[in-house]
Amino acid sequence: MSFDRLPPLAAMRAFDALCRLKDFSIAAHDLNVTEAAIHHQLRVLERFVGKRLVDRGGPGSSKTTFDLTPAGKQAAVWVTTGFHQLRKGIDAARLDGQPIVIGVPVSFGFCWLSPRLRALQEAFPSQQFELKAYYGGDPEGRLPDCDVRVVYGVGRAIDEDIALLMRLEAFPVCSTELIGGGTNLSYNDIKTIDLLRDRTPDMERSLPDWRPWFGRHGQNPDQFRYGAVASNTFLNIEAARRGQGIAMAFGVLVADDLAQGVLTRISDSVYDVHCSYWIAVARSAPAQAHAVAHWFLSQAAAH
Protein backbone atom coordinates (compact mmCIF):
# COMPACT_ATOMS: atom_id res chain seq x y z
CA MET A 1 0.00 0.00 0.00
CA SER A 2 1.31 3.44 -0.90
CA PHE A 3 1.27 5.83 2.06
CA ASP A 4 1.19 8.92 -0.20
CA ARG A 5 -1.94 7.79 -2.05
CA LEU A 6 -4.49 10.58 -2.57
CA PRO A 7 -8.21 10.38 -3.31
CA PRO A 8 -9.35 11.18 -6.86
CA LEU A 9 -8.92 14.83 -7.76
CA ALA A 10 -12.53 15.08 -8.95
CA ALA A 11 -13.76 13.98 -5.52
CA MET A 12 -11.62 16.53 -3.70
CA ARG A 13 -12.64 19.24 -6.14
CA ALA A 14 -16.32 18.50 -5.50
CA PHE A 15 -15.73 18.59 -1.73
CA ASP A 16 -13.85 21.90 -2.06
CA ALA A 17 -16.80 23.41 -3.95
CA LEU A 18 -19.21 22.16 -1.28
CA CYS A 19 -17.09 23.67 1.50
CA ARG A 20 -16.85 27.02 -0.29
CA LEU A 21 -20.47 27.31 -1.42
CA LYS A 22 -22.36 25.38 1.30
CA ASP A 23 -24.96 24.10 -1.16
CA PHE A 24 -25.07 21.02 -3.43
CA SER A 25 -26.98 22.80 -6.19
CA ILE A 26 -24.70 25.85 -6.26
CA ALA A 27 -21.58 23.66 -6.10
CA ALA A 28 -22.83 21.68 -9.11
CA HIS A 29 -23.41 24.91 -11.04
CA ASP A 30 -19.94 26.16 -10.07
CA LEU A 31 -18.28 23.02 -11.46
CA ASN A 32 -20.65 22.78 -14.44
CA VAL A 33 -21.80 19.28 -13.48
CA THR A 34 -25.05 17.77 -12.26
CA GLU A 35 -26.01 17.72 -8.61
CA ALA A 36 -26.01 13.91 -8.80
CA ALA A 37 -22.34 14.05 -9.86
CA ILE A 38 -21.50 16.09 -6.75
CA HIS A 39 -23.22 13.49 -4.55
CA HIS A 40 -21.33 10.70 -6.34
CA GLN A 41 -17.94 12.36 -5.90
CA LEU A 42 -18.68 13.00 -2.23
CA ARG A 43 -19.45 9.30 -1.71
CA VAL A 44 -16.15 8.43 -3.43
CA LEU A 45 -14.27 10.69 -1.02
CA GLU A 46 -16.14 9.39 2.03
CA ARG A 47 -15.33 5.78 1.04
CA PHE A 48 -11.68 6.75 0.72
CA VAL A 49 -11.64 8.45 4.13
CA GLY A 50 -13.81 5.82 5.77
CA LYS A 51 -16.05 8.40 7.45
CA ARG A 52 -19.04 10.54 6.63
CA LEU A 53 -17.96 14.10 5.82
CA VAL A 54 -21.36 15.69 5.24
CA ASP A 55 -24.60 15.44 7.20
CA ARG A 56 -27.17 15.28 4.41
CA GLY A 57 -30.23 15.29 6.68
CA GLY A 58 -32.72 12.48 7.20
CA PRO A 59 -33.86 9.93 4.61
CA GLY A 60 -35.71 11.50 1.72
CA SER A 61 -34.45 14.97 2.54
CA SER A 62 -34.63 17.31 -0.45
CA LYS A 63 -32.47 20.07 1.09
CA THR A 64 -29.47 21.11 -0.95
CA THR A 65 -27.77 22.76 2.04
CA PHE A 66 -25.94 20.70 4.66
CA ASP A 67 -23.68 20.65 7.70
CA LEU A 68 -20.19 19.20 7.84
CA THR A 69 -19.53 16.38 10.29
CA PRO A 70 -16.54 16.72 12.67
CA ALA A 71 -14.45 14.69 10.23
CA GLY A 72 -15.72 16.87 7.38
CA LYS A 73 -14.71 20.06 9.18
CA GLN A 74 -11.21 18.69 9.71
CA ALA A 75 -10.90 17.63 6.09
CA ALA A 76 -12.30 20.95 4.86
CA VAL A 77 -9.43 22.91 6.40
CA TRP A 78 -6.84 20.98 4.43
CA VAL A 79 -8.76 20.55 1.18
CA THR A 80 -9.88 24.18 0.81
CA THR A 81 -6.45 25.48 1.81
CA GLY A 82 -4.79 23.15 -0.68
CA PHE A 83 -7.04 24.20 -3.55
CA HIS A 84 -6.56 27.85 -2.65
CA GLN A 85 -2.79 27.41 -2.88
CA LEU A 86 -3.17 25.52 -6.16
CA ARG A 87 -5.20 28.36 -7.63
CA LYS A 88 -2.61 30.89 -6.49
CA GLY A 89 0.17 28.82 -8.02
CA ILE A 90 -1.61 28.41 -11.33
CA ASP A 91 -2.41 32.15 -11.39
CA ALA A 92 1.22 32.97 -10.73
CA ALA A 93 2.37 30.69 -13.56
CA ARG A 94 -0.33 31.84 -15.97
CA LEU A 95 0.11 35.53 -15.27
CA ASP A 96 3.85 35.67 -14.67
CA GLY A 97 5.08 39.00 -16.02
CA GLN A 98 1.60 40.20 -16.88
CA PRO A 99 0.49 43.46 -15.28
CA ILE A 100 -2.62 43.93 -13.21
CA VAL A 101 -4.79 46.41 -15.10
CA ILE A 102 -6.31 49.16 -12.95
CA GLY A 103 -9.06 51.37 -14.37
CA VAL A 104 -9.83 54.73 -12.75
CA PRO A 105 -11.94 57.78 -13.62
CA VAL A 106 -9.66 60.47 -15.04
CA SER A 107 -10.00 62.93 -12.16
CA PHE A 108 -9.59 60.21 -9.52
CA GLY A 109 -6.45 59.03 -11.29
CA PHE A 110 -4.90 62.51 -11.45
CA CYS A 111 -5.89 63.75 -8.00
CA TRP A 112 -5.93 60.67 -5.77
CA LEU A 113 -4.07 57.76 -7.33
CA SER A 114 -1.07 59.44 -8.98
CA PRO A 115 0.31 60.80 -5.66
CA ARG A 116 0.09 57.24 -4.28
CA LEU A 117 1.66 55.31 -7.13
CA ARG A 118 4.96 54.89 -5.29
CA ALA A 119 3.12 53.52 -2.25
CA LEU A 120 1.25 51.10 -4.50
CA GLN A 121 4.46 49.82 -6.07
CA GLU A 122 6.16 49.54 -2.67
CA ALA A 123 3.24 47.46 -1.42
CA PHE A 124 3.61 45.09 -4.41
CA PRO A 125 7.30 45.35 -5.39
CA SER A 126 7.31 42.44 -7.85
CA GLN A 127 3.99 43.26 -9.51
CA GLN A 128 3.64 45.25 -12.70
CA PHE A 129 0.65 47.56 -13.15
CA GLU A 130 -1.08 49.07 -16.15
CA LEU A 131 -3.27 52.10 -15.49
CA LYS A 132 -6.27 53.00 -17.63
CA ALA A 133 -8.05 56.32 -17.14
CA TYR A 134 -11.61 56.61 -18.41
CA TYR A 135 -14.46 59.09 -18.41
CA GLY A 136 -17.80 58.59 -16.80
CA GLY A 137 -19.26 56.67 -13.90
CA ASP A 138 -20.20 53.46 -15.74
CA PRO A 139 -21.85 52.18 -12.55
CA GLU A 140 -23.60 49.19 -14.09
CA GLY A 141 -21.23 47.86 -16.72
CA ARG A 142 -17.77 46.37 -16.49
CA LEU A 143 -14.91 48.26 -18.06
CA PRO A 144 -13.34 45.83 -20.55
CA ASP A 145 -9.90 44.38 -19.80
CA CYS A 146 -9.62 45.79 -16.25
CA ASP A 147 -8.77 43.55 -13.31
CA VAL A 148 -9.46 46.24 -10.72
CA ARG A 149 -11.31 49.49 -11.25
CA VAL A 150 -12.63 52.43 -9.30
CA VAL A 151 -16.30 53.09 -10.06
CA TYR A 152 -18.18 56.34 -9.57
CA GLY A 153 -21.80 55.47 -9.03
CA VAL A 154 -24.23 53.67 -6.77
CA GLY A 155 -22.48 50.34 -6.32
CA ARG A 156 -23.84 48.11 -9.08
CA ALA A 157 -21.55 46.04 -11.28
CA ILE A 158 -21.64 43.04 -13.62
CA ASP A 159 -19.24 40.10 -13.24
CA GLU A 160 -17.36 41.93 -10.50
CA ASP A 161 -17.04 41.87 -6.73
CA ILE A 162 -17.65 45.43 -5.54
CA ALA A 163 -17.16 47.26 -2.23
CA LEU A 164 -17.61 50.83 -1.05
CA LEU A 165 -14.35 52.77 -1.32
CA MET A 166 -15.28 56.35 -0.38
CA ARG A 167 -18.44 58.28 0.36
CA LEU A 168 -18.46 61.66 -1.32
CA GLU A 169 -19.24 65.22 -0.39
CA ALA A 170 -18.33 68.39 -2.25
CA PHE A 171 -17.53 71.93 -1.22
CA PRO A 172 -16.04 75.07 -2.85
CA VAL A 173 -12.26 75.51 -2.90
CA CYS A 174 -9.84 77.95 -4.47
CA SER A 175 -6.16 78.81 -4.45
CA THR A 176 -4.91 79.91 -1.03
CA GLU A 177 -2.92 82.68 -2.72
CA LEU A 178 -6.02 83.97 -4.53
CA ILE A 179 -7.77 84.90 -1.30
CA GLY A 180 -4.72 85.49 0.88
CA GLY A 181 -5.40 82.49 3.07
CA GLY A 182 -8.85 83.59 4.19
CA THR A 183 -11.77 81.21 4.70
CA ASN A 184 -15.55 81.46 4.82
CA LEU A 185 -15.77 84.12 2.13
CA SER A 186 -18.88 86.26 2.09
CA TYR A 187 -21.23 85.98 -0.87
CA ASN A 188 -20.17 89.47 -1.92
CA ASP A 189 -16.56 88.21 -2.05
CA ILE A 190 -17.59 85.18 -4.07
CA LYS A 191 -19.38 87.42 -6.60
CA THR A 192 -16.00 88.89 -7.62
CA ILE A 193 -14.44 85.51 -8.53
CA ASP A 194 -15.19 83.23 -11.48
CA LEU A 195 -17.02 80.03 -10.57
CA LEU A 196 -15.65 76.98 -12.37
CA ARG A 197 -18.23 74.54 -13.69
CA ASP A 198 -18.10 70.82 -14.38
CA ARG A 199 -19.96 68.77 -16.97
CA THR A 200 -18.09 65.47 -16.99
CA PRO A 201 -19.71 63.07 -19.50
CA ASP A 202 -22.05 60.43 -18.01
CA MET A 203 -21.80 61.98 -14.54
CA GLU A 204 -23.55 65.31 -15.10
CA ARG A 205 -26.79 64.64 -13.22
CA SER A 206 -25.04 63.61 -9.99
CA LEU A 207 -22.30 66.25 -9.95
CA PRO A 208 -22.53 69.21 -7.59
CA ASP A 209 -23.76 72.33 -9.33
CA TRP A 210 -23.45 75.97 -8.34
CA ARG A 211 -27.05 77.00 -9.00
CA PRO A 212 -28.76 74.56 -6.61
CA TRP A 213 -25.99 75.21 -4.06
CA PHE A 214 -26.73 78.94 -4.07
CA GLY A 215 -30.46 78.25 -4.04
CA ARG A 216 -30.13 76.17 -0.89
CA HIS A 217 -28.39 79.11 0.77
CA GLY A 218 -31.05 81.64 -0.18
CA GLN A 219 -28.93 83.30 -2.86
CA ASN A 220 -29.92 84.28 -6.40
CA PRO A 221 -27.70 82.13 -8.68
CA ASP A 222 -27.84 84.77 -11.43
CA GLN A 223 -25.91 87.28 -9.32
CA PHE A 224 -22.66 85.34 -9.58
CA ARG A 225 -19.96 85.10 -12.26
CA TYR A 226 -19.64 81.76 -14.02
CA GLY A 227 -16.46 80.77 -15.79
CA ALA A 228 -15.82 78.21 -18.50
CA VAL A 229 -17.52 74.82 -18.42
CA ALA A 230 -14.98 71.98 -18.19
CA SER A 231 -15.57 68.43 -19.38
CA ASN A 232 -13.35 67.05 -16.64
CA THR A 233 -13.32 67.56 -12.87
CA PHE A 234 -9.52 67.57 -12.83
CA LEU A 235 -9.43 70.58 -15.17
CA ASN A 236 -11.49 72.59 -12.68
CA ILE A 237 -9.34 71.55 -9.74
CA GLU A 238 -6.16 72.41 -11.64
CA ALA A 239 -7.63 75.79 -12.63
CA ALA A 240 -8.48 76.44 -8.98
CA ARG A 241 -4.93 75.52 -7.96
CA ARG A 242 -3.65 78.15 -10.39
CA GLY A 243 -5.91 80.89 -9.05
CA GLN A 244 -8.34 80.88 -11.99
CA GLY A 245 -11.50 80.68 -9.91
CA ILE A 246 -13.48 78.68 -7.37
CA ALA A 247 -14.19 74.99 -7.99
CA MET A 248 -16.88 72.84 -6.43
CA ALA A 249 -14.77 69.77 -5.73
CA PHE A 250 -15.11 66.35 -4.16
CA GLY A 251 -13.33 66.42 -0.81
CA VAL A 252 -11.39 63.22 -1.46
CA LEU A 253 -9.90 64.71 -4.64
CA VAL A 254 -8.59 67.87 -2.97
CA ALA A 255 -7.68 66.48 0.46
CA ASP A 256 -3.95 66.44 -0.30
CA ASP A 257 -4.02 70.01 -1.66
CA LEU A 258 -5.92 71.22 1.41
CA ALA A 259 -3.47 69.51 3.75
CA GLN A 260 -0.52 71.08 1.90
CA GLY A 261 -2.12 74.55 1.88
CA VAL A 262 -2.31 74.75 -1.92
CA LEU A 263 -6.09 75.01 -1.85
CA THR A 264 -8.39 76.53 0.75
CA ARG A 265 -11.93 75.56 1.56
CA ILE A 266 -13.96 78.78 1.46
CA SER A 267 -17.19 77.56 3.07
CA ASP A 268 -18.14 75.07 5.77
CA SER A 269 -21.24 74.14 3.81
CA VAL A 270 -21.14 70.84 1.92
CA TYR A 271 -22.96 69.57 -1.14
CA ASP A 272 -24.16 66.02 -0.53
CA VAL A 273 -23.44 63.72 -3.45
CA HIS A 274 -25.71 60.73 -4.02
CA CYS A 275 -22.96 58.70 -5.66
CA SER A 276 -19.79 57.28 -4.14
CA TYR A 277 -16.50 55.75 -5.25
CA TRP A 278 -16.48 51.95 -5.26
CA ILE A 279 -13.69 49.44 -5.81
CA ALA A 280 -14.53 46.54 -8.13
CA VAL A 281 -12.57 43.38 -8.95
CA ALA A 282 -13.37 41.31 -12.03
CA ARG A 283 -14.30 37.76 -11.11
CA SER A 284 -11.91 36.58 -13.81
CA ALA A 285 -9.02 38.60 -12.33
CA PRO A 286 -5.97 36.93 -10.75
CA ALA A 287 -5.91 36.43 -6.98
CA GLN A 288 -3.45 39.30 -6.56
CA ALA A 289 -6.11 41.72 -7.82
CA HIS A 290 -8.06 41.25 -4.58
CA ALA A 291 -4.96 42.20 -2.59
CA VAL A 292 -4.66 45.35 -4.71
CA ALA A 293 -8.31 46.19 -4.01
CA HIS A 294 -7.65 45.81 -0.28
CA TRP A 295 -4.71 48.21 -0.66
CA PHE A 296 -7.11 50.81 -2.13
CA LEU A 297 -9.49 50.25 0.79
CA SER A 298 -6.72 50.65 3.37
CA GLN A 299 -5.46 53.83 1.72
CA ALA A 300 -8.97 55.28 1.64
CA ALA A 301 -9.52 54.43 5.31
CA ALA A 302 -6.21 56.11 6.26
CA HIS A 303 -7.21 59.36 4.57
Rank of each mutant, 00 (worst) to 15 (best):
P59E: 08
P59Y: 08
G60H: 07
G60L: 04
S61P: 02
S61Q: 02
S61N: 09
S62Q: 12
S62W: 01
S62R: 15
K63V: 00
T64E: 10
T65H: 10
T65M: 02
T65K: 05
F66M: 00
D67R: 14
D67C: 04
D67W: 01
L68F: 08
L68H: 02
L68K: 07
A71N: 08
A71M: 09
A71H: 10
G72H: 00
G72M: 02
G72P: 01
K73E: 15
K73T: 11
Q74N: 04
Q74A: 12
A75F: 08
A76S: 15
V77F: 08
W78G: 13
T80R: 05
T80M: 02
T81Y: 02
T81G: 15
T81A: 15
F83T: 05
Q85Y: 15
L86E: 09
R87Q: 11
G89R: 07
I90F: 09
I90K: 06
D91G: 11
D91H: 12
A92W: 01
L95M: 15
L95C: 12
D96P: 00
D96E: 14
D96Y: 12
G97Y: 07
G97E: 05
G97T: 05
Q98D: 11
Q98P: 04
V101H: 02
I102S: 01
I102Y: 02
G103I: 03
G103R: 09
G103N: 10
V104P: 02
V104I: 13
V106T: 14
V106D: 03
S107N: 00
F108P: 08
F108S: 04
C111L: 14
C111F: 09
W112R: 07
W112C: 04
S114C: 06
P115C: 06
R116N: 14
R116A: 13
L117I: 14
E122Y: 03
A123F: 03
F124H: 12
Q127Y: 09
Q127N: 11
Q127C: 05
Q128M: 09
Q128F: 07
F129T: 02
L131P: 08
K132M: 10
K132W: 05
Y134Q: 04
Y134W: 12
Y134K: 10
Y135F: 15
Y135N: 11
G136C: 08
G136N: 07
G136S: 06
G136K: 05
G136M: 03
G137P: 10
G137S: 13
D138C: 11
P139Q: 04
E140N: 11
E140R: 13
G141V: 14
G141K: 14
G141P: 00
R142W: 09
R142P: 06
L143A: 01
D145C: 02
C146E: 06
C146T: 15
D147R: 05
D147A: 06
V148P: 06
V150K: 01
V151I: 15
V151T: 06
V151F: 04
V151N: 10
Y152E: 04
G153Y: 00
G153L: 01
V154L: 07
V154A: 10
V154M: 07
G155F: 06
R156N: 08
A157N: 12
I158F: 12
D159A: 15
D159F: 14
